[in-house]
């Protein structure tokens, strides 16, 4: 009797252990809260923007990342009116190259994106802030309009 009970317990614990990875998180659908966080921080690495913040005068921005093959990525954009982040780029799976890039539109002066990555081992969220500024400001920051004598 005791042996049977112990065997049942062991079987139950094994089954539970197998299920844990698949029920430890639920992938987000069409929205994700601004402050959402994932169970992992190493599924993807955001290459651009390096510091997860950027300023540009352009009306689009390219986000790039690397990650393990098979990792899925969704991009959400914060909608202040709705108070949540809405899906702007559907699920894409990173392939054998491990590289990922996508172009997002910058409609506002302040644009907040949530990059959501997930696979069988967990999920990860990364917040990216892109500010739109005037071109003349960008030029000054890049130092392109320095005087001619600097180049000769």
């Amino acid at each position: 009797m005791i042996k049977k009970f112990a065997a049942a317990m062991i079987a139950f614990m094994l089954a539970f252990a197998c299920i844990i990875p698949t029920v430890s998180f639920a992938a987000y659908g069409n929205t994700i809260p601004l402050g959402a966080y994932g169970s992992r921080s190493d599924l993807i690495y955001i290459k651009r923007p390096e510091s997860h913040n950027a300023s540009t005068s352009d009306k689009t921005y390219t986000i790039s990342a690397t990650g393990g093959a098979g990792t899925k990525i969704k991009i959400y954009k914060y909608n202040a009116g709705a108070g949540t982040c809405q899906l702007v780029k559907g699920e894409t799976t990173i392939g054998a190259s491990g590289l990922y890039s996508t172009v997002v539109n910058l409609n506002n002066d302040s644009n907040i994106f949530m990059v959501y990555a997930y696979n069988d081992w967990g999920d990860q969220t990364v917040r990216i802030d892109i500010n739109r500024i005037k071109k003349s400001t960008v030029d000054r920051l890049k130092g392109i309009t320095v005087t001619i004598k600097n180049f000769f």
Partner: peptide, 10 residues
């Protein structure tokens, strides 16, 4: 896009 620089297990 910094694809010319390796990082981690890239």
């Amino acid at each position: 896009l910094f694809f010319d620089k390796a990082f981690g297990n890239q």
